[in-house]
Design a protein around this nucleic acid. Structure first.
Lengths: 241, 241
DNA sequence: CGGTAGGTTGAAAGGGGTCAAGTTGTGTGG
DNA sequence: CCACACAACTTGACCCCTTTCAACCTACCG
């Protein structure tokens, strides 16, 4: 349950701010947030783009929380550790998700890039100023945070009350819902990451994948991708959650 | 893991709004929220006070979410159910806590009074209007919601990675932190409630209490109250979380 | 091609669940 | 105020799902 091989704290490249508007417009929490305003994103104007390598740390639990982040591209894991090394992955973040909206003075979890990732970095001081200037922004952030809270509550139900196979089915369906469209899902995270997200061990996750494969509910494609062959049966397995 | 004997949906008494200001001023999420403004609470002006009996339902998962609530007195449980009846208690709410800030059009969990409770009911339409009139309120709600998210993340770590005894110790310490002051903690909820909050069974919770008792870490007082005899040893057991 | 990390599979052990039987506590009615 | 009924809680014995420990396989990368 270890292998936390985060390498460095400094991003590979730091792109200056103005380039932000040249990037593909990041949506705010796609499929989870009912976006109310569709005008130019005010956050993008004060964000600094940063690129992180695979397995690189973005910030660590306990560090001064001087910035919040929004994922533009790639995948990030957020996790908390117990003193003896047991790890719980709080969530996997994809394009559009916000990170670090804790409003505590220290980060309460760690963040690492799973794949090479691009994130917007928004300094706390600038965010506070922007919140003063644009009060409507607080309502959008409230909406985003509320969506995260809903996801967290679903995860509590999963962790507290579901069996290993139910957890795995729920996890794949949730990923599928985010990916939408085709039924092929990218699984860039390791079995260990999945285990630490679902409160299981790598072995149990692996056995679960095998069982879902032999039951013809999923199919493993190349490049660590998975196809959901029978979403309905999976939903049944996942106990409707 | 069942025994969900919620009785009625209508509150016992409905007190008219103006009385709100005569009640003891509810703090916003005590010990979890750094209260920034100390002026008269704007929510109280549009809130309607309601009293619920012990074991009475406040709202149920799936109902139209036409109001949010704030606990003035008593204790509330929030929970989600799986189709087969397995229950996960999302949280126990006490004075100052907010309920139902989901901003979905349906409640995503159920709420029931554990003890006789007084809550402020705030209609969604009125809350929206108030948010328009007082943009600063959104930032306070954002702060409250963020605190809930932090608590939810701690709970994920607990559910996913802690042993039964560690879960129980963490739970008692968290309650103790909220109660503050003396080390006697009120435990108005049943063993079944605690079990459904910690992802355990009543039997395991009961065995845990016995073990903590015989280890002289806690002492059971009358009226379902518990005294933490050795908070440090408990914190050790809880793995610092 | 060889080394290594990640993944799969097997066998055994254990923590917590399940089932069952007491015990305590509490609210109600006589 | 006491007696009863019922629910909540506790304790014990057994079982099972997941973990643990271990071996092996596979893929990627130098």
């Amino acid at each position: 349950m270890l292998a936390h091989t985060a390498i460095a704290a400094q991003p590979t490249r730091v792109l200056p701010g103005p380039l932000a508007s040249a990037m593909p417009m990041p949506r705010v929490a796609p499929s989870r947030t009912p976006t109310t305003t569709n005008d130019i994103d005010p956050l993008a104007t004060i964000a600094q783009l940063r690129v992180f390598d695979r397995e690189q740390a973005i910030f660590a639990e306990g560090e001064a929380a001087d910035a919040v982040f929004r994922v533009v591209d790639g995948m990030i894991r957020l996790y908390k550790l117990l003193p003896d090394g047991r790890r719980q992955i709080i969530g996997f973040l994809q394009a559009g998700d916000m990170v670090g909206l804790a409003f505590a003075d220290r980060y309460l979890y760690s963040a690492e890039a799973i794949t090479a990732s691009t994130v917007q970095r928004i300094a706390r001081s600038q965010l506070d100023a922007l919140l003063d200037a644009q009060p409507a922004l607080a309502r959008r952030l409230l909406s985003v945070t509320t969506s995260e809270l809903v996801a967290a509550q679903d995860q509590m139900l999963l962790l507290g009350r579901k069996s290993a196979l139910e957890k795995l089915a729920s996890f794949l369906l949730a990923l599928g819902r985010r990916a939408g469209a085709g039924r092929a899902i990218a699984l860039p995270m390791s079995r260990c990451d999945i285990a630490d997200h679902l409160g299981l061990t790598t072995e149990t996750v692996s056995r679960g994948f095998t069982k879902l494969k032999t039951s013809r509910l999923i199919r493993i494609l190349d490049g660590g991708r998975v196809e959901l062959l029978d979403a309905e049966a999976l939903a049944d397995l996942a106990d409707c959650a």
